[in-house]
Simulated assay, not measured.
Amino acid sequence: MSTPPPTGPLVTRDTLAADLRALGVRTGETLLVHSSLSSLGWVNGGPVTLVQGLLDALGPDGTLVVPTQSGDLSDPALWSNPPVPEDWWPTIRATMPAYDPRVTPSRGVGVIPETVRTWPGALRSAHPETSFAALGPGAARIVEGHAPDCRLGERSPLARLEAGGARVLLLGAGYDTCTSFHLAEYRVPSPVVEVGRPSPEGWRTVREVSITSDLFAELGADFERDRPVVRGTVGAAAARLFPVAEAVAYAERWLPLHRPRDLYVEVASAPGGSGSRRRP
């Protein structure tokens, strides 16, 4: 039985850069990218080619930012896909490696963030579960000072991206991946939860704003209906481009009107993954 040929289009570094420029990516800007490599078509060179194409479109003065989450550094009591036996929990907590931005791999965010994380010159923020990695002249300013008790709020790279006029590129990814919406959750009334994770000093618990992406697809659809979002294609992938600040401001108004008022609880959707935080 013969192997079917790959589905196209054939995508190269040059075609990626050209498509990104045609979409509206500007030389010298800061871009927060959420991506799906498989949506693009047959990419010659895979994730390396995509990162090169993004860097080509941004130019030497631009900065590329990606989420490099590592939700497996979390409390095993919350893991659900699959769960682990309860009698394992104490040992897992006692032996789980602490976060190290240099070596801890990203998880659950796709192959492109991991490629950026390991790229020469990349810098990564310090939060053990919701870090970001950045490449370019603005990288240090964006990733520094990510507080361990502030996943995606005012002391995270998201606030610096908002203040610096960065834009979001959804590249074959939906609004459910749009981390910028989480910044709004820190600015509207939200419950606070206790979150356990490893640290160099051992297992520790911090208080965090409870966050959920459960309504982000609906939020994103309304945002796109009401605000100017650049839409196009890159390779075969649907692409959307919009300012971080506009997404956050819209979500600040939308969330209090649409999300349920009962408390959220932490539920991990993969073994050690951060997943979404679902209501009970």
Rank of each mutant, 00 (worst) to 15 (best):
T7W: 15
P9W: 07
V11K: 00
D14S: 07
R21F: 01
V25C: 07
V25T: 03
T30M: 05
S38T: 07
G41N: 06
G45D: 10
G46W: 09
P47E: 15
L54I: 08
D56R: 05
D56I: 05
A57N: 02
P60C: 01
G62L: 13
Q69L: 15
G71R: 07
L73P: 00
P76N: 00
A77T: 10
L78C: 08
P82F: 00
P83E: 13
V84S: 08
E86C: 11
E86S: 14
T91D: 01
V103W: 14
T104V: 06
G108I: 04
V109E: 14
G110I: 08
V111P: 05
P113D: 12
E114V: 05
T118V: 11
G121D: 09
L123V: 13
A134C: 07
G136R: 07
G138L: 12
A140C: 01
E144N: 02
E144W: 00
D149W: 06
C150L: 07
P157A: 10
L183R: 08
A184D: 10
R187T: 12
S190P: 09
V192A: 09
G196H: 10
V209Y: 04
L219M: 11
T233S: 15
A236C: 06
A239H: 05
A249W: 02
R253V: 07
R253F: 03
W254F: 03
L255I: 15
D262C: 15
V265W: 06
E266R: 12
A270C: 06
R278P: 09
